[in-house]
Design a protein around this nucleic acid. Sequence first.
DNA 1: TTAGATCCTG
DNA 2: CAGGATCTAA
Length: 580
Amino acid sequence: MDPNSSLLSGPAQHPTEPCMEGGRSLSPREQSRCSPFAWSQVPGSSLSDPNCFGDEHIQAKRARVETIVRGMFLSPTPLGPGRAHAGDGLSCPEKAWGRKRKQSLPAQQGPLEPGPAGKRGGGRKGGPRVRGQLHLLRQQVRHLRERVLRAVEPRAAAQGPATADQRHGPGPGPWGVDSDHHHCPGSVGDLSRLETHRASEVQYLPEGPRFLPSEARALLESLKKELTGAISQAVDSVLQKVLVDPSGRLTQLGGRLQGPVPDGRSEPSPPEGGAHKDPLPLAALPRRAQPPAGAPLGSLSLAKSLDPPRYPISPRMIPKPYQAPPADCPLVVAPAHIQEEQILGQLLGHGPGGRWRGGLPQDPSARSQPSSEVALRPWGAARLRPLASGQQQCPWPFTSTCLERLALVPPFSLTLGQIQEGLNPGHLKKAKLMFFFTRYPSSNLLKAYFPDVQFNRCITSQMIKWFSNFREFYYIQMEKFARQAISDGVTNPKMLVVLRDSELFRALNMHYNKGNDFEVPDCFLEIASLTLQEFFRAVSTGKDADPSWKKPIYKIISKLDSDIPEIFKSSSYPQELFRN
DNA sequence: TTAGATCCTG
DNA sequence: CAGGATCTAA
């Protein structure tokens, strides 16, 4: 008897939200380079200790600040005071910063420590007012630090910072409708939110009373600058601790930055122990498949098939262990392909709801723009960056250098290495998986689902050609198995149902889903069954005598395209599957 | 004329 | 899977 006892009898498999963890580690060299402030300003030392502020400290600080202020005023491109992220014109070479820092900061000495030769008697013109400002700023620093730490703390992050930064948060984005469903907390999006949060805080710092004496105001601004730097460094240090654990993995991003982790995901299901790895050498087709009692075998009849097929909402991915990127991640140099893909996946591979779309603090212009274009072409924004224009890559002087690189480098690399043109094997694989949902994708659809591809005529036709080839194989298989069924004596086309353990399915799966990374959606099985039946009817009724006998079948099938899951719009969605 | 689909070939 | 040829519809 035919062992096939159920239609569409895939083993019950639980859709798994692909939830990749992102981020990347910093090489030691990078870390050291990233932190021009060294560790002297890490809050938690004198900065956060209210008791450490004596007059001596203030005076020493003033002396230091005055030095800085003079240096700023002597600078050819003076920094607009109090406009942290608006300093577009600011040439912010790290060297210059480093010089200034060295000039004013003895190594290993905190900026708020008394300078060795502080200018005494510089006057107390600021007086109590300045002290009040200092106090205020100190409090803000504490708050900021607490909030940063809270955001990084495992539990507290679930609640998130409470206050005023929402209005600065990135909008939902064009895919944001149901994107929250896919959003993986703890992704780079959170990181970017953290950064955005900080940006908003920088803006939030009071502009400073205009009535202050100019010197005091300069002092105030300088202090703001210092404090912001300290915050930056605090974020750096915290994030570095979070991002790079001793094993070099970035797991903490998912574990700490995010809210409660759905424990349900437990461990990655082993690479498919059952399901499709079936060793059975199955009959060619589940001929005369007898469904279990009540199983609607007839549901695959032509009439029924005209109903919109049911599509799985969330195609199951077989999660693979996250692979940590190499420790020494190149900065501007375009890394190797693998690294690029890893970075791509890590930074952007968070599903259509990933927060990367508008969230990364790339540059002021990018931040200030609504991110629709950016969202549709994530790298487009990066390409607009003045990489070769001679402008320094430090549009935001107060940004944590490390964090900024963390966010910026991958787009750079991709811009230089990958985005230009050309399709890679990952794109091909993705296209094959998409074939399970759509056999006749329009070029617009392809553009929508390959946001990391710079489409041109050639690329478009190549991808169209891919699907043409997919169809070719598909129809060939259908015809082949239909004819085989006929020769095997099948008379009722409704008996022809493509099951997951049928030979036809295995052939198709081998072609489009080699490696079994993906659970073939049921809708594809229905379409396949229908196609098979159509071929069966045509051949069995002798229509194949007509040279164009396949065209009606093509027409039918072309109307049965399904919606592709939104997650496919992520430029990195399937790529996690392909590593290893 | 062009884009897209199919067929054929390698 | 790509390239070329052919056909068709816009």
